[in-house]
């Protein structure tokens, strides 16, 4: 029981972060270009980069595909400070 509580608290302090901005810099594309490549609006990319919005699995997979990396390399969990 205490393990479950521990796990729960550990998970609740995690937040999803991403390094799309870095990946974009490597590919030398703007937010607008990335948005057009995966068929969303520029605001969506902006919100994801600012960690304001957690994308759906489909969108995360698409972004990873554009960067030709694994999803885990683009999106990851991080402790909130």
């Amino acid at each position: 029981m205490s393990d479950i509580i521990l796990l729960f608290t550990a998970l609740s302090f995690k937040k999803m972060k991403n390094n799309i901005r870095v990946e974009r810099a490597i590919l030398r594309i703007t937010q607008q270009q990335l948005a057009e490549m995966i068929g969303v609006s520029r605001q969506t990319i902006n919100a994801i980069e600012a960690n304001k919005y957690v994308p759906s699995t489909v969108l995360a997979l698409k972004i990873a595909k554009v960067c030709s990396k694994k999803v885990e390399d683009v999106f990851f969990l991080e402790d909130t400070d």
Partner: peptide, 10 residues
């Protein structure tokens, strides 16, 4: 919207 996506949904 012209560019309907999941963020707009939210």
């Amino acid at each position: 919207e012209k560019n309907e996506d999941e963020y707009i949904y939210k």
